[in-house]
Amino acid sequence: DTLSIHQLAAQGDLNQLMKYLQQGDFLIDLQDEWGFTPLMWAAAFGEIAVVKYALEKGADPHILGKERESALALASVRGYTDIIVLLLDHGVDVNIYDWNGGTPLLYAARGNHVKCVETLLAKGADLTMEADSGYSPMDLAVALGFKRVQQAIENHVLKLLQSNRV
């Protein structure tokens, strides 16, 4: 009974979360001390049922944490592709960046999440955006030896080149 709405979201406890929200739907966008909403906690821990429910309840997927953390970036760190698709379908910016100069694509590449990289690229992620340290998604893939991520980026570039041919 004492768990916060953020903990309930992270733990995927949909029943308790629904009970909590009986106090008022506005609580769905309640921010914790880091500025994180229940949706952000659920996205970070891969709790897709909670993400779906929160979005149905009108949770705002655009809210950023105190260091510009986004639900999309948090899902990308761990490679939760299905959550990424849901968030993008709700209109979040695929190229949102944070204090680190981090974009969802950079986090997905850093984590070797190939499917996630492919999805973000297909949804228009900018592969030229670099982290503050100057690393692009391709630089990361090469530096870390993530061949499949490298290949996914190369395939995307080839597609772009082909579609630009007159």
């Binding site: 768990l3 992270a10 733990q11 994180f36 680190n100 950079l106 340290s133 690393y135």
Partner: peptide
């Protein structure tokens, strides 16, 4: 029984441990 509390999510330093560009 109550599940343990989850620690706050965070975004990692992307280039930690990588050589400078």
């Amino acid at each position: 029984t109550q599940m343990p509390l989850y620690t706050s999510p965070s975004l990692p330093n992307i280039t930690l441990g990588l050589p400078a560009t």
